[in-house]
């Protein structure tokens, strides 16, 4: 469903993403993890067609994102960590706008249960300025899911959500995966990745450190110890080599 070949993104001389190759099949949830500045958000933005990759190809649902961007974009939804909403459109108007863009004929039949699922059905006539941070996030998610995308990217999806919202978001992601969507989720929360991802891809300085199913990666990094914690695995995978010990000059003889 998502096929990425040698994806590279440069900013001048700086390599933000370096020769990234991976794929995500329908029903899989890939956790994109890495330290700050590893290139996770840049990767997701390239995969969503927001920024052009410098090199490499991205295929979404069989369509090349560079050659056939319209068909590819119709398959996907991108939920950013910071909800990007139009200040002057109400919740309902946002969904109406998205419905026209994606030609969702029965959008109202989809929107009503979706808003109820996200617990913002009573905010339908509110402007984003009247919503809390979490509600804005839910509205952005509702907009993304309205056209039933087959490919979904989440960038830090739990930011700003309350505990119940977090629970519902996890259930929602898993439900979409069960329904056959291919999902990529970028997060620093290793317990979230552990709970809902079937695969992970660890990035460091724009390059792939390792990828595979959770079980494979656990096995690879826990050979020397019985510790199977994903957080520990992440720390080992991204660890810097230990610094060289300082050279201690012996004091001159008195």
């Amino acid at each position: 469903m998502i096929q990425v070949e040698a994806l590279t993104k440069l900013y001048g001389d700086f390599v933000a993403v370096n020769q990234l190759t991976f794929s995500v099949q329908p029903g899989e949830v890939l956790g994109l993890v890495g330290p700050n500045g590893a290139g996770k958000t840049t990767t997701l933005r390239c995969l969503a067609g927001i920024i052009p990759p410098t090199r490499g190809t991205v295929r979404v649902g069989g369509y090349d994102l560079a050659r056939d961007p319209i068909a590819a974009k119709k398959q996907l939804a991108f939920m950013t960590d910071e909800p990007r909403l139009f200040d002057y459109l109400t919740v309902g108007q946002h969904l109406n706008f998205v419905a026209r863009i994606y030609q969702v004929v029965n959008w109202e039949e989809i929107a009503t249960p979706l808003l109820e699922e996200l617990e913002i059905a009573d905010k339908r006539d509110k402007l984003p300025g009247e919503l809390s941070r979490g509600m804005k996030q839910k509205l952005a998610i509702a907009c993304g899911l309205l056209h039933s995308p087959r490919v979904i990217y989440f960038d830090e999806p739990l930011t700003g959500l309350d505990p119940l919202g977090i629970r519902r978001m996890k259930d929602s992601i898993l439900k979409r995966a069960r329904d056959g969507a291919a999902i990529i989720l970028s997060s620093h929360l290793m317990h979230l990745v552990e709970q809902i991802c079937s695969h992970i891809l660890i990035l460091k300085r724009g390059g792939k450190v390792i990828d595979g199913s959770i079980a494979e990666i656990r096995n690879r990094f826990s050979q020397e110890s019985a510790d199977n914690d994903l957080e520990e695995v992440f720390l080992r995978a991204t660890a810097e080599p230990p610094p060289a010990p300082p050279v201690v000059t012996p004091p001159p003889p008195a």
Binding site: D87, Y88, Q93, A99, R100, I101, V104, G129
Partner: peptide, 26 residues
């Protein structure tokens, strides 16, 4: 910002770019 009535009913089918006109008129 105040809630503004849309200038016309935006139907879900039709030329998609009209959605941008509708949004910007609001």
């Amino acid at each position: 910002h105040k809630v503004k009535r849309p200038p016309f009913t935006l139907r879900p089918v039709g030329w998609p770019a009209v959605a941008l006109l509708w949004k910007n008129l609001i």
